[in-house]
Amino acid sequence: MIYKIGKLISRIVLSLVFFAKIEGKENIPVDGPVIICSNHRSYFDPPLLGSYIKRPLRFMAKEELFTSKWFGPLIQKLGAFPVKRGGSDRGALRKGINVLANGEMLLLFPEGTRSETGEIREGLTGVGFFALKSEATVIPAYIQGKYKPFRRVALRYGSPISLEGLRKNQASSREVTDHIMSHIQKLKDEAQKPKNR
């Protein structure tokens, strides 16, 4: 219930304040495990990525956010689970794998932190790990805009990324991550192309 309420409130704010434009929702499978991999611009990104799709979205958040007596339990009910920054967090990795094993959707920000400039940086190998250790469908996503009031923020979900060849050839987590990041970069390049008039 709290997730649905949070989703509704987020959708209202994102639509009325940031004129959110969403494309590519049809690319998201209606069932089965899914990993959504997106660039990261703002704390508003998780609500934007989760508010306009039907399926609940789980995501990692830095463990410091869970120390608050009221905020920690709230974001847990909104789909978040803690991760330690600055190193490998095996507990968070196991949790993410369990989310996918249960057929749920997992949101990952491969860059690991927000990009102040909007440039897409090298992804962390954790995203490749999740893709290789699960049979999840991987969906790239790109967010364009700075969340300024009454300025449009656009989100596009791309087509599923084929990982069959990489999995078959036992590619490394680094190789899979780089492959996924190239698809996010492609979405960015397409979003920045001048529109024909």
Rank of each mutant, 00 (worst) to 15 (best):
S159M: 13
K95Q: 12
S134H: 07
M1N: 10
F66K: 07
F129W: 11
K69P: 02
N196P: 15
I53M: 14
A131W: 13
K62T: 06
G6N: 10
L166N: 06
K186I: 01
L124I: 12
S159Y: 11
G91E: 07
I97Y: 15
K84V: 07
V83A: 08
S15K: 10
R167L: 01
R90K: 08
N27R: 15
N98Q: 11
P29F: 04
I22S: 00
T117V: 07
K193E: 02
T125M: 01
I5Q: 10
I161N: 09
G145A: 07
P140M: 01
H183A: 05
V153T: 11
S38W: 07
T125K: 07
R58H: 15
G50A: 12
L93Y: 10
G24C: 14
I161H: 14
G165Q: 10
F130R: 09
S162F: 10
E23S: 14
T177W: 06
G103T: 04
P33L: 07
T113L: 11
I35V: 15
T177Y: 09
R167Q: 01
P56F: 04
S10D: 03
N39P: 05
A141M: 03
S15C: 06
Y147M: 03
K25A: 13
S115A: 05
R41K: 08
I120C: 05
E111R: 01
H183D: 08
V30G: 12
G128P: 14
R41T: 11
K7E: 00
A80M: 12
K4N: 08
I35M: 13
S68E: 02
M105K: 02
E116W: 15
K168H: 10
L106T: 07
I36T: 04
Q170L: 10
Y142M: 04
K54T: 11
K195G: 04
K62D: 03
P82E: 02
P110N: 00
G79N: 00
S51P: 09
I120S: 02
V176W: 07
R197K: 15
S68V: 14
R58S: 12
